[in-house]
Design a protein around this nucleic acid. Structure first.
Lengths: 205, 205
DNA sequence: GTCTATATGGCGATAGAC
DNA sequence: GTCTATCGCCATATAGAC
């Protein structure tokens, strides 16, 4: 790990990596310390306890994901462009941060109380951007079918994200090799976009 | 836990519950023993080690899920019926076994090597049933659009399953209460079915 | 087969020198 | 601030009586 940057920063990066890989219970303070090129004692000097370190990493991770997913969509994009950018954005984000997103969901299920409190202060509206509002307008204008904005968004995210998250299970269920599965994932963006457009557009191109 | 059934069976049930709740690292042999109304020593008498018990539970869980998901679809169902039954089946299954499915995915990511070996002997073809073949036929006959059977299946599963699995994250991202979110989930089945039909059918009703 | 008691090892956390 | 050495605890696993 790059020793030019400060110890505290190195520890955070190492901790995120180790927590994501092993989960909270599986993570070892020793491995985090080693990975940050620092002794276990120094680690405790900076962050009093494992739980404290855990909380800090979760907060950091979540806000960075929110920042990352910030809408790339502008007001004057057509509905086709909006949907295209959404699919591209979600696929790219979850491809890049699959392990983190996964870790997040897992720990949310195991330590729901702790994490509710951690995330209470974070602004989550950027997560969905102004997308829901945009869908609502299109629905009113009649350019798309009569569907709840939330349901449309969930459909888009689900098709985009599910195969990425469920890869280890899907690969086996479908009997696909590593290469075959990557190939399948790589080709999905336009397929999902066309699928959504075919379902929601009133006037097909 | 019901003490009329054999100790071994009681332990398996208790182990599955505890592993699903806490994950492998978070699970305690003491909790499994308590939950099975048996001493920790007896637990080790039946299953030599924690890892051994873990492997047995994973094998049992996975094959029971496969059995459960076995196609409810018959040859002479219309394509509309097929899609309807698929959505209903996946939603019901993942609603009932959300924690287990989740646990599964998580451990698959953390201990991929171990689990590959465990599942090598299991028949996974029931997981997708004859669905892919059916989609291929409909595509050739031209009743549905030109889409890879695998992609269509992933789209259906993704929309059905994603919001159930991602509940803890989605609830916060969308700022919905427990009640609001359940309500949303409860209403989704027909929405997803109609969405899929709108996207794939050549001749709309 | 089932138990209590104990061995063994690893982990988070701390003491205290430098 | 950083380290080595060590404490104290708890979890898996075993020994051995019943």
């Amino acid at each position: 790990m790059d020793s030019k940057i400060g110890a505290e920063e190195r520890i955070m990066q190492a901790a995120i990596a180790v927590f994501c890989l092993r989960g909270y219970d599986g993570a070892r303070m020793q491995e985090i310390a080693d990975s940050a090129d620092i002794s276990k004692a120094s680690l405790h000097y900076y962050f009093r306890s494992k739980e404290n370190l855990f909380r800090k990493t979760v907060r950091e991770l979540f806000s960075s994901i929110i920042r990352n997913i910030r809408s790339r969509i502008s007001e004057d994009d057509s509905i086709e462009e909006v949907i295209g950018k959404l699919v591209n954005g979600y696929v790219d984000m979850f491809t890049a941060h699959r392990r983190q997103a996964f870790y997040f969901l897992t720990e949310l299920m195991k330590h729901e109380e702790v994490l509710s409190e951690i995330m209470a202060g974070l602004d989550t509206s950027a997560f969905t951007g102004g997308i829901l509002e945009r869908f609502r307008k299109e629905r009113e204008a009649g350019t798309i079918i009569d569907i709840e904005p939330v349901d449309l968004l969930i459909n888009i995210i689900g098709m985009s994200v599910f195969p990425i998250m469920a890869e280890p299970m899907l690969k086996r269920a479908l009997n696909l090799s590593e290469a075959e599965f990557s190939n399948l994932l790589a080709k999905r963006k336009p397929i999902v976009i066309n699928f959504v457009l075919a379902a929601v557009l009133r006037d097909k191109p």
